[in-house]
């Protein structure tokens, strides 16, 4: 029996879809069987971030409404053996086309088959959010170090706790070490202190995210990307491994290179 994890945030544009794509890919590279579910009905995006937009035949609403079987709607990502699949969102329907009960049944069915079911949640706190969290065993709340994103994360954490989500962890995305250093950006401790929640990882701002999204290739495939490395670390933590937080700034000292060589830096 696998685990269903919802990637959520409240505020839009903080990196939920990028996080879902990268964590899913990293888990697949670790030989876990993964299915990504795009729950953002009407605004589907996970397909383009993954570079699978040309392979869609059926979508999530086709499955819940019985137009096709679940297996028919799953797109196999051929880059990762039999390890990574995508269930795309419907683009022509809206969020009311699915109910929380249907999502719960769907994730249940997927969990029977896969190790990890990652659900990409839409922004907001309305029905799309309630659908996305319905079948999840665990939530990762994505925020950026900005007042608006942290405020919305707080609201989402409150809603997740109210709905009795068993495990809720925070992912701080797009942190800029140089700004943190000069006191112009909240750092990890500031945000954890405010939100009082467990941290699953921190991802630095990285231009390579834009480049890899342009190409439809998740950044975790780029061995030199700092963000990719951070996402790979988080994927390992999801599987229960203890992985220390990587230093925020790229270090090129001799010791750091030695550490990376032995796998401590990743």
């Amino acid at each position: 029996m696998g685990e269903a994890i919802v990637i959520t945030s409240g505020k839009g544009g903080v990196g939920k879809t990028t996080t879902t794509a990268n964590l899913g890919t990293a888990l697949a590279l670790m030989e876990r069987r993964v299915v990504l579910v795009d729950a953002d009905i009407g605004l589907r995006n996970l397909d383009v971030v993954m570079g699978l937009e040309n392979r869609i035949v059926y979508d999530l609403v086709d499955v819940t409404s019985g137009v096709c079987r679940l297996k028919q709607a799953l797109i196999k990502d051929k880059r990762f053996n039999e390890n990574l699949f995508l269930l795309p969102a419907a683009q022509t329907k809206d969020k009311t086309a699915v109910t929380p009960e249907q999502m719960k049944a769907l994730t249940g069915e997927l969990k029977a088959e896969y190790d990890y079911v990652l659900v990409d949640c839409p922004a907001g706190i309305e029905q799309g959010f309630r659908n996305a969290i319905a079948g999840a065993d665990r939530a990762i709340v994505v925020t950026t170090p900005e007042v608006s994103a942290v405020r919305d994360a707080d609201r989402i954490i409150g809603l997740l706790e109210a709905s009795e989500m068993p495990e809720v962890q925070l992912l701080i995305n797009r942190i800029r070490p140089s700004m943190v250093k000069r006191g112009d950006m909240m750092d990890i401790d500031d945000i954890i202190d405010i939100l009082a929640i467990d941290l699953i990882g921190v991802v630095p701002e990285d231009d390579k995210i834009v480049v890899s999204t342009n190409r439809g290739e998740p950044t975790v495939l780029d061995a030199n990307s700092r963000a990719g490395q951070a996402f790979r670390n988080i994927a390992r933590r999801i599987t229960g491994e203890q992985v220390p937080l990587m230093p925020l700034e790229a270090e090129h000292g001799f010791m750091e290179r030695v550490k990376q060589l032995f796998g401590f830096g990743r």
Binding site: E146, V147, V150, R151, D154, R155, G158, V180, R182, G183, D184, M185, M186, D187, D190, I194
Partner: peptide, 19 residues
């Protein structure tokens, strides 16, 4: 003051009210 201190203080207040 570094702007993050301002951000933290504003967040602290707004969250007391939100919560």
């Amino acid at each position: 003051a570094p702007s993050k201190e301002i951000a933290k203080e504003r967040l602290r207040l707004v969250l007391v009210h939100d919560r």
